[in-house]
Design a protein around this nucleic acid. Structure first.
Length: 312
DNA sequence: AACCCATTCAACCGCGATCCA
DNA sequence: ATGGATCGCGGTTGAATGGGT
């Protein structure tokens, strides 16, 4: 038994949308807002499946879309974000107001890929094309985790992977790493915050990039130097990866008698370092680190009971 | 004008994640 | 705990378009 189709295909239109269909969809959403896509077509009198309506609205009809050519600044930002996030088009799109994931994906495949290749850069790894990838396998003694990756391309970023940073039970070695990580985050925050690095330490001393701890130390050090150089040389593209509030269940529940906005504003009054330290202590997912703008409370950090996974 | 080929981008498809009864 | 329904994402497809011959 396969998965049931998302809609009754026999009675739905496919292919390009007509002006009338567009208008119906716009009119309906203007009145009722974005809601249940499944029931929308019927309610709006459209012979389309909900999925198709959603796509049409998000990628084409939404009033806040920018359209038009990408600027050089946008190009560079996309390249930079892609080097950090990989093919996470929706996350990249979240940093480019008025642009959709589909648009960026297409633009990447048709323009930027070529642009990078012409610069002698591998579009997937963001490293010089003549560098031959080597495979390294790292197995740590404290965990059974084995990570395989290529040196040319950092381990493929997984958007929903969560960080697990437990200070209390960490080995002395891990603690020194955590200190290093925190200083790294602190450093990045003072320049331009790189959320990916916050994910670097997982399972105590097994790194997500597949490097040994020593390599990771070296890598972080090297990265820091590089960052410093960049920021001095050309005022590196400021990614403005704003940090969204991580789920603050306890803060919220502790102040449940007052409103949750109080708890939030209390946290926002903290210094960036205090705030980041909390993030590290809690452990937050990439979504929260990136400041997901779609939902106030990230689902990745929330389990099915509504509690947050990483709160101590 | 007719054909061919390359490029672009809107739309589709399949799948994993999440919700919810 | 389970399974169907739904959402959202990333990869792929194919019609439309433009340029070259």
């Amino acid at each position: 038994m396969g998965r049931s189709p998302c809609c009754e295909k026999a009675h739905t239109n496919k292919g390009a949308w007509t002006k009338e269909e567009d208008q119906r969809l716009i009119d309906y959403i203007r009145v009722h807002g974005e809601g249940c896509w499944r029931s929308l077509p019927k309610a709006a009198g459209l012979l389309r499946c909900g999925k198709s309506c959603r796509l049409r609205w998000i990628n084409y009809l939404r009033p806040d879309l920018k359209r038009g050519n990408f600027t050089d600044e946008e190009d560079e930002l996309i390249i930079k974000l892609h080097s950090l996030l990989g093919n996470k088009w929706s996350l990249i799109a979240g940093r480019l107001p008025g642009r959709t994931d589909n648009e960026i994906k297409n633009y990447w495949n048709t323009h930027i890929k070529r642009k990078l290749i012409s610069r002698g850069i591998d579009p997937q790894t963001h490293r010089p094309l003549n560098v031959k990838p080597t495979t390294t396998t790292t197995t740590t003694t404290t965990t059974t985790t084995t990570t395989t990756t290529t040196s040319a391309g950092a381990a493929k970023p997984t958007a929903n992977r969560v960080t697990q940073l437990n200070f209390e039970n960490a080995s002395p070695q891990s603690k020194s790493e955590i200190t290093l990580l925190k200083s790294n985050i602190d450093f990045k925050y003072s320049n331009s915050f790189n959320p990916i690095k916050a994910e670097s330490i997982e399972d105590n001393n097994c790194t997500s990039s597949g490097m040994t701890t020593e390599e990771e130390h070296h890598h972080l050090h090297h990265h820091r130097q590089e960052e410093e150089r960049n920021s001095h040389e050309n005022q590196e593209v400021n990614l403005e990866l704003t940090i969204g509030l991580p789920p603050m269940q306890s803060e919220l529940t502790r102040t449940s008698s007052s409103n949750s906005a109080d708890a939030e504003s209390k946290l926002q009054q903290q210094t960036p370092y205090q705030f980041l330290s909390k993030m590290v202590t809690w452990g937050v997912c990439t979504c929260c680190q990136l400041g997901s703008q779609r939902s106030e409370l990230c689902r990745n950090c929330q389990n099915s009971n509504g509690f947050y996974r990483f709160y101590h």
